[in-house]
Design a protein around this nucleic acid. Sequence first.
DNA 1: TTGCAATACATAGCTTCGCAATGCATCAAT
DNA 2: ATTGATGCATTGCGAAGCTATGTATTGCAA
Lengths: 98, 98
Amino acid sequence: MLSILAEGESYGYAIIQRVRELSAEEIQWTDGMLYPVLHRLERDELITAEWRQAESGRERKYYRLTTKGRSSLKEEKANWLTVHNTLGKLWNLQPVST
Amino acid sequence: MLSILAEGESYGYAIIQRVRELSAEEIQWTDGMLYPVLHRLERDELITAEWRQAESGRERKYYRLTTKGRSSLKEEKANWLTVHNTLGKLWNLQPVST
DNA sequence: TTGCAATACATAGCTTCGCAATGCATCAAT
DNA sequence: ATTGATGCATTGCGAAGCTATGTATTGCAA
């Protein structure tokens, strides 16, 4: 979620589509699992939300990373790579530099 | 856990040390989080347990993968790589082939 | 113009998981 | 004899995962 928002602000429905697209349809988040996560991230001040009218005229809730969110992402990414490289040793994968 | 046991049978304490070693000390599992996981995997029949005496003369509980565990690992590994490659697109990493 | 699919957000609630805390026993070395 | 490392186990709380469900709007086709 944080990595998606690091590309730029977005909103619920678009995030689902983006993940779907990036994963070649393999990851299909539902809105029911998306919004609770967004609310939690907002509560933890990793993202901020703003209602705004899209060009379509429709009201949407746009989310963007906060500074705290950016540093959390950095940390989470490092953690991911640590785990990935550990698994990589068991799976004979090329290590990924942090 | 499944990947560790795919290397061959092992037991709780050794698994913790193996993960620690593979991760260059970065991942430090505690026994309190390890055993519940082992018990769950055993309940789900992904691993089997057997008390046996080590050469040291000490009783240890050795775990090994079942066939079901092996196929679960295969599935989990594919899932991991899907997520990793999706994140990789956002992080500009080289894709890892399944 | 009506009805359906897609867009858009939200919450309730059950199940499972993550993890720390705690307990206990054995073994080796000092 | 005591300490630190080895070795397994359970309890329990808070957090997370995910399904089900509710509501409203928009756009398009029948």
